[in-house]
């Protein structure tokens, strides 16, 4: 009997692919770098509260709900790219 048997001898090693594919930050699907920059500026605006864990649309809606006036062009951008995770920041909510 060979001494150093490994579990991978009987069960082949399976490389797990990352279940959540983070979209690369380069331009795709029509979103330009400058538009992303605008969205990023919105994320960092402290007046509208923390931005982690929720999508940008949720954050925009919350700001309205709290009686604040978030910039209208952000809403327009979010509506213009409804299925782009880079714009909506869905992956933030999906990673957990």
């Amino acid at each position: 009997m060979p001494q150093n048997r490994l579990i991978t001898d009987t069960l082949p090693a399976v490389k797990t692919t990352e279940s959540i594919s983070k979209p690369s930050l380069d331009v795709q699907g029509g979103v330009t770098e400058s538009e992303l920059q605008v969205l990023h500026t919105f994320d960092l605006n402290y007046e509208f509260g923390p931005c982690l864990g929720i999508s940008r649309m949720q954050r925009w809606d919350r700001a309205v709900h709290l009686g604040l006036t978030p910039p209208q062009h952000i809403h327009a951008l979010l509506e213009y790219y409804p299925s782009d995770p880079q714009v909506q920041q869905w992956w933030v909510a999906r990673t957990c």
Partner: peptide
């Protein structure tokens, strides 16, 4: 039921409201 958010939101909303 989504439990992936940090609690910072709750404090921020509480203060704002």
């Amino acid at each position: 039921r989504s439990f992936c958010r940090p609690y910072a939101h709750l404090y921020a909303v509480r203060l704002a409201l």
